[in-house]
């Protein structure tokens, strides 16, 4: 089985900017994959290269085994892209836009599938509305719909939830999750790390055009972020703990790896005569991983 996406030693410069620097990445079929990185990391450039919107300087890219240059027709038929920019054609209604998009992919009678997409994205009541009349969030939904008209096995979403209300985020992710369960490969970029943490089974982090971390979400969380005991005390933290503990805003944070360690920790604190005002257990989160990876990458 060929991977859903294969990116081999891809580099791309814009003038003196290295947008992509020797990127290697393979995404298997059926994955829910997160592509993360700060602004300007190269996420959109990588997606554009995959979609044939940008020609790379060196390297190869393929979608479902089809090279995006030499076999661009097959590659594009297997790929659906939701662009980051909020673009629309002001001449047409929602349904017209979707029918035209279907036609570009050689699909004639697509009304049933279009209806299903509209329904699932909460667009059914706006189907006849001109694109100009839609709010920003509604336009974003149409962009998602347009990427799905040809039922692509690989779906790439470039910040689909930017500027979108809570309700749509929920419905959008439910729909995308269902597509993933039905076998579609999903790749998404987002700056909402919680979203990525909840949805993605694997994550790549990009910085300055390079992949600086690539692992399953679980492994990343385990490697870079631990559970921590977070507490606020009236007194001073015992000496033996201050090496591990960090303080910020009146809260101490003591990392631990296994829940067995909690009891001895609490005992130490109590015997040192330190009074606990407030206590919680912090879970590892992707935000912390992200910050650490980016800092680490900085020193390379």
């Amino acid at each position: 089985m060929s991977p859903a996406i294969r990116i081999e030693q891809v580099s791309k410069r814009f003038g003196s900017t290295r947008a992509l620097d020797n990127v290697d990445l393979e995404i298997e079929q059926g994955e829910f994959f997160g592509l993360l990185g700060p602004n300007g990391a190269g996420k959109t450039t990588l997606i554009s290269a995959l979609a044939g919107l940008v020609r790379v300087d060196t390297g190869n890219l393929s979608v479902m085994g089809y090279d995006v240059q030499s076999d661009y027709r097959a590659a594009r038929r297997h790929l659906g892209v939701v662009p980051q920019e909020l673009v629309f054609d002001p001449f047409f209604s929602v349904r017209e836009s979707l029918k035209i998009q279907s036609g570009y992919f050689g699909i004639g009678d697509n009304d049933d599938w279009i209806d299903e997409i509209l329904e699932n994205l909460g667009l059914a009541s706006r189907a006849g509305a001109n694109m100009r009349m839609l709010s920003g969030g509604m336009k974003r939904r149409v962009l998602v719909a347009q990427a799905l008209v040809h039922r692509p096995p690989v779906i790439v979403l470039d910040e689909p939830t930017a500027g979108v209300d809570v309700e749509l985020r929920q419905t959008l992710w439910q729909f995308i999750k269902r597509l993933n369960e039905a076998g579609h490969t999903i790749v998404l970029t987002t700056h909402y790390l919680e979203e990525a943490e909840n949805l993605c089974n694997r994550i790549a982090m990009l910085k300055d055009g390079r992949v600086v971390a690539l692992d399953t979400t679980k492994q990343l969380l385990r490697r870079f972020s631990a559970h921590a005991l977070r507490l606020r005390t009236g007194g001073v933290m015992p000496k033996e703990l201050t090496s591990e503990a960090t303080e910020s805003g009146g809260w101490w944070s003591i990392p631990f790896n296994s829940f067995d360690e909690i009891e001895p920790l609490l005992v130490k604190i109590r015997t040192a005569g330190c009074e606990i005002d407030s206590l919680e257990i912090g879970k590892p989160d992707l935000e912390e991983v992200f910050i650490r990876v980016m800092q680490g990458a900085h020193h390379e």
Binding site: A51, G52, L53, Y72, R73, A74, R76, R77, L79, V81, P83, E85, V87, F88, D89, P90, S97, I100, Q101, Y104, F105, G106, Q146, H150
Partner: peptide
């Protein structure tokens, strides 16, 4: 307007 992508993405 950027909607040229709609014709550049399809085959």
């Amino acid at each position: 307007t950027g909607n040229i992508v709609f014709v550049l993405l399809p085959p």
